[in-house]
Amino acid sequence: MQLGFLVDLRLCMGCKGCEIACKVENEVPLSTWRLRVKYVDVGSFPETKRTFTPLRCNHCANAPCERICPVSALHYIENGIVNIDKERCIGCAGCVMACPYGAIYIDPQTQTADKCTYCAHRVASSMMPSCVVACPVEANIFGDLDDPMSNISKYIQEHQGNVQVRKPEKGTDPHHFYVGGGNVTLNPLASFRGEGHNLFNNLTHLPIGGHH
C-alpha cells in the first residue's frame, strides 16, 4: 500500500476548510501550518482571477527530509507515509533545509520538527485525513496508489496529461498530485510575494521560535 493525495485545483474554492480542520485535528500551533491554502492573484484589473493551491507534505518516495534526519525521527511507515517521531527529534532543522517544498516547520511549543502526516493516526483507524473530510467540494482525494481501483488511481488515469507534481526535477517522487495546476499555482518562484500589509494580513517573517 502506498497512500497518496490528489488535489483537483479546478474544484478548490479556497475556503480553507481543510486548513482549519488540519489545525484542529493536529493541534497545530498559531503561526504554523501543516497544510495551507496558497492564494495567488493573477492578471491586472479588470482581467484578474484568484487561484487556490492547498500545500502540504508530499510524502515523497525519495524524501530528502527522511534522508537528512540524523536520528530517523522522520521515517517511512508501511503505507508510504513519511511520519515523524517528535520524541526522537533533536530539532536540528536539517529537514527544514532539505524539504524542497517548505512543508516542515519547527513547532514552537515542542521545539521539534513537524509536518503533515496524512493524519497517520486517523488512517490507522481506517478514517480519512481530516482535510479530506472537511473539503466541501471533494477536491482532496486520498487513497492507495498501488490499488488501480482506488479513487485516486482512477482519478489519475482519467486525467492523464493534466496531473502534475510540484518540482518534479528534484527527483523526490512525490505522492501528492495536482490536477489543473500550472506554473502560477505550483512554482513558488513564479509569483511576487511581498512583505507588509495586504487586504487581510500583515505578511512578515516566520517566527522561528526557541532560542533563535
Binding site: 495551507r36 511581498g194 495586504n198
Partner: peptide, 21 residues
C-alpha cells in the same frame, strides 16, 4: 509589483521564510 512573466502575486499567505540556520 507583479512579475511580468506570470502577472501573478501571492495575496493571502503565510509569513515569508525566516532564517533557521
Amino acid at each position: 509589483e507583479i512579475i511580468a512573466a506570470t502577472n501573478a502575486i501571492v495575496t493571502l499567505d503565510v509569513a515569508l521564510p525566516g532564517i533557521v540556520w
